[in-house]
Design a protein around this nucleic acid. Structure first.
Length: 236
DNA sequence: AAAGCATACAACCGCTTCTAA
DNA sequence: CTTAGAAGCGGTTGTATGCTT
């Protein structure tokens, strides 16, 4: 398909609002369609990512709680870099967020531990982003769906009953966390909903005024009747 | 106060998997 | 059954912000 010119880079607030609007109309599945129909010069892929990682109403924001940290550690030790799977166990957190978090916090932490334990083994790097072959099998236990799981392919985990090296360090890490637990004020780790969503949730904002409509890139007038109809059909 | 470095997070890319025609 | 397009995942990169020297 020839798309005139797709925008890249950071999303503007206006784009966010626009995307939320169309996702509300059409649901969070048909991303290419949404991308086209919304008038956003973004790919469906980009729209999905933005929604999943930033705009989804169930998203938590703010720091990971101790509990979440633990969970990430534990699940990563089980499943390796199956971020989406791990994210399913942390409501309100995205795979991207967990992935980032892991890279910055946990991996560093674990590497330090590793170093402390075996300073001689310079570059065994057994820990670094465990490859699929060293991962654990996810027990096929849950039918849960994470909020960001828009119903895509089922993740079939490869069932290899092997322990990752990382697990060896788990006890140490737990201890570490235990120690630091006293320092973490849970109240300060509170989360908040996506700000854009707050904005968009407010029904008073949906009937946009003229100025707002003009700001929108989308050809509102052309599609609006259809959308209104569609909206009623779909959302009820 | 400024430069350099580290960290956190958003977004993109390429590949895999799923699904519908 | 085959295949093309859509959707999802994991890895990687870019950028903004905070911290240290």
């Amino acid at each position: 398909m020839v798309q005139e010119e797709t925008r890249k880079g950071p999303w503007t607030e206006q784009e966010d609002v626009q995307l939320v609007f169309y996702v509300k109309l059409f649901g969070d599945r048909r991303w290419d369609f949404i991308a086209k129909v919304s008038g956003l010069k973004r790919t469906g892929k980009s729209c999905r990512l933005r929604w999943v990682n930033y705009l989804h109403p169930d998203l938590k924001r703010g720091k990971m709680t101790l509990h979440e940290e633990r969970l990430v550690l534990e699940l990563h030790s089980k499943w390796g870099n199956r971020w989406s799977r791990i994210a399913q166990k942390l409501p309100g957190r995205t795979d991207n967020e967990i992935k980032n978090y892991w890279r910055t916090h946990m991996r560093k932490k674990a590497q330090e531990k590793k170093k402390a334990i075996s300073p001689s083994s310079s570059s065994s790097s057994s820990f670094s982003s465990s490859s699929p072959t060293t991962e654990f099998t996810p027990v096929a236990e849950n039918n849960e769906r994470s909020f960001y799981d828009t119903g895509g392919r089922n993740v079939l985990a490869n069932n290899i009953g092997k322990k990752s090296d990382f697990e060896v360090d788990m006890d140490d890490i737990w201890k570490d966390i235990e120690l630091s637990e006293g320092n973490c004020k849970f109240s300060s780790c509170q989360t908040m909903a996506s700000p854009i969503w707050d904005f968009c949730q407010d029904p008073s904002l949906w009937p946009m005024d003229k100025e707002e409509q003009n700001k929108m890139v989308l050809p509102m007038s052309d599609h609006f009747n259809y959308f209104t109809f569609y909206n009623q059909e779909m959302i009820g």
